[in-house]
Simulated assay, not measured.
Amino acid sequence: FMPSSFMSYAVDYDGDGKKDIWGSFPDVFASAANYLSSVGWKDDVTWGRQVQLPEGFDESLAGLDTKKKLAEWADLGITRFDGSELPSRDDIVASVVIPDDNEGRVYLAYANYDALMRWNRSHYFVAAVGYLSDRIRFPR
């Protein structure tokens, strides 16, 4: 956290009377959650998912400014990374993110991806934190 972020979002979660994001894991995680909640993190959806693009995908559709329903992306030939169909939820909109090139990783980015991008504008940061959140929420 920058000093202004600390002042706005730090939390004394362990109840010791100090907001200690350097020495208290409870304070660290509660402060991070407080910040993410304030920028739009939604607990009922994930951050995104790695996907496969069809041959000849129009890369001008990639980027966080283009949002479509999952069914619309499916109609354009996008599948889950394993080749299976995308979820059939019409209440979720997503963007296609290609951080490297279309031969590398490609993601469908949901609202939580946008929230993480408000914290750090790096697609690599967002993917790393997203995967970490998945492993915490859905341990193998």
Rank of each mutant, 00 (worst) to 15 (best):
A74W: 08
W73P: 00
S84A: 11
N120E: 12
Y113K: 01
G23D: 07
V45G: 05
G77Q: 08
F25V: 15
E85V: 13
D75E: 14
S60P: 02
T46E: 13
A62Y: 00
T46R: 13
A94H: 03
P87F: 05
H123T: 12
K68G: 02
G83M: 08
A94P: 10
F29H: 11
T46Y: 11
N120C: 12
F125C: 08
K18M: 10
A10M: 03
G130Q: 07
W22A: 13
A94F: 02
A62L: 00
A128I: 12
V126E: 02
W47F: 06
F29Y: 14
V11S: 00
D75S: 12
S24K: 00
H123R: 09
K67E: 10
W73I: 00
A30K: 04
A94Q: 08
V39Y: 01
D82G: 09
F57W: 01
E72L: 09
Y107R: 06
G40D: 01
E85P: 11
F125Y: 13
F57N: 01
T46M: 13
S88I: 09
P139T: 03
D27M: 01
E55N: 12
Y107H: 11
H123Y: 13
V11A: 00
I21V: 10
I92Q: 07
A94E: 02
S31H: 03
S60F: 03
P139M: 05
F57K: 04
P99I: 09
G83T: 05
V106R: 02
L36W: 04
E59I: 11
G104P: 05
S38F: 00
S133C: 08
M7L: 15
F6E: 03
K42F: 02
A10T: 03
N112I: 07
A71N: 14
K67A: 09
G40I: 01
D114W: 03
P26C: 07
A111D: 14
G63R: 04
T66K: 15
G23W: 01
K19C: 03
T46F: 10
D100C: 09
R89I: 04
W73V: 04
Y107N: 07
S24E: 01
E85W: 09
P99L: 02
L116A: 08
D20G: 07
A71Y: 13
G48L: 10
R89Y: 12
P99D: 01
D91P: 03
P99W: 03
R89G: 11
R137W: 11
A115K: 05
A74R: 12
P54A: 00
P3K: 04
A115I: 02
M2T: 15
L53N: 04
D134W: 12
S38I: 00
N102G: 10
F138Y: 15
W41Y: 06
Y110D: 04
D20I: 04
A128D: 13
F6M: 07
V106Y: 00
G130V: 02
Y110W: 06
A94L: 02
V51N: 09
D14V: 00
S88K: 14
V45C: 09
F6C: 07
K42Y: 04
R121C: 06
Y113P: 03
R121E: 15
K19R: 12
I92D: 06
Y9W: 09
A109P: 04
S24L: 01
S38K: 01
P87A: 08
V96L: 12
T46G: 15
Q50V: 13
E85N: 14
M117P: 03
M2D: 15
G15K: 08
